[in-house]
């Protein structure tokens, strides 16, 4: 082993051992645990697929897992669509020395307590909430709207708000990297502003869009606070179910199984997306 290798290995050892001990080993433990079963107060250590069968067949588990993926998918699409024009505006229409000020303005709201931001959406959407008070005050509606809180829509809206900057920043970075002379070349060659956008800008911004999609999708699938606060019973997601199994239901092995299934679904979707864009990029 040469000196270079030895020094590098010595330096990486503490963070690597930490990640092995507190991440790799625990994830392995969850995997092992997911094959055990809970037998009232004791855990039966005979390896079995019973939990996985239950997760695949029991309608409650299937509904909630499916709903988590659908809600996260909707949040991702909505957030990225809403974020793209903002990132585009800051990158293409703001003076270079003003850009960091705009980014600063966009990120500030996200440094207030996450819990309170979610809770404030409950205040916005509630029966006596801001939106209902405003609408009844203006005489637009007579009765407060009840369909805007405690359902999946409320979860989608709240999560889209919470994850907005995580979508704006990677798209902004990708747009900043675009060589502006390519856009001029496209215009000189007779493309219109619109076709230039779709044939030059958007393909070049794609890595940022993909990063934004992954950054929003992966954590939202496992979000606990938002469904618990604004989701009501029809907005419950997988994290709430996992928490319930470790808490009140006292069935940790089933909770471990649900964690593995959730993590596997997210990984498969994320990899499929990355693979699809590579394929798309290679075919061009």
């Amino acid at each position: 082993m040469d000196q270079e290798t030895r020094r590098g290995a010595t330096l990486i050892a503490p963070p690597l051992l930490y990640a092995l001990a507190l991440l790799a080993v625990p994830l392995g433990a969850v995997l092992v645990f997911s094959f055990w079963t809970q037998d009232y107060l004791t855990v039966d250590r005979t390896p079995t697929l019973a939990n996985y069968v239950k997760a695949a067949t029991d309608p409650i588990y299937r509904t909630i897992l499916g709903r988590s993926l659908v809600i996260s998918g909707a949040v991702t699409v909505l957030t990225v669509l809403l974020a793209f024009p903002v990132a585009y505006y800051v990158s293409f229409h703001v003076r270079p020395d003003r850009k960091s000020l705009w980014l600063f303005l966009i990120t500030i709201p996200f440094w207030t307590s996450y819990l309170l931001r979610i809770f404030l959406w409950k205040v916005m959407l509630g029966y006596n909430g801001v939106i209902n008070s405003a609408l009844t005050g203006l005489g637009i509606i007579d009765e407060p709207l009840t369909f805007i809180l405690y359902n999946a829509n409320a979860v989608v809206l709240t999560l889209s708000h919470a994850f907005a900057p995580f979508a704006i920043l990677p798209i902004f970075v990708a747009l900043e990297k675009i060589d502006r002379s390519l856009l001029e070349a496209s215009r000189d060659l007779g493309e219109t502003g619109v076709t230039t956008f779709f044939r030059v800008t958007l393909p070049l911004a794609l890595p940022g869009v993909i990063a934004a999609i992954l950054i929003v999708f992966i954590p939202t699938v496992g979000d606990y606070v938002t469904p618990a606060q604004v989701g009501g019973s029809e907005g419950t997601m997988i994290a709430n179910l996992i928490q319930a199994h470790f808490g009140g239901l006292n069935d940790a092995p089933m909770g471990a199984t649900l964690s593995i299934v959730a993590m596997a679904s997210v990984t498969v979707i994320a990899l499929a997306l990355v693979w699809a864009t590579r394929k798309l990029g290679g075919a061009r």
């Binding site: 991440l23 625990p26 645990f33 496992g222 994290a239 471990a256 964690s259």
Partner: peptide, 26 residues
Amino acid sequence: AMGLIMLPLVLPEIIVAVSLLVVAIR
């Protein structure tokens, strides 16, 4: 090695919570 160290960035936090809970308690 860097992949493992950076992995928590792309893991839902509930997974980190569950895995450490399992190890710590069980």
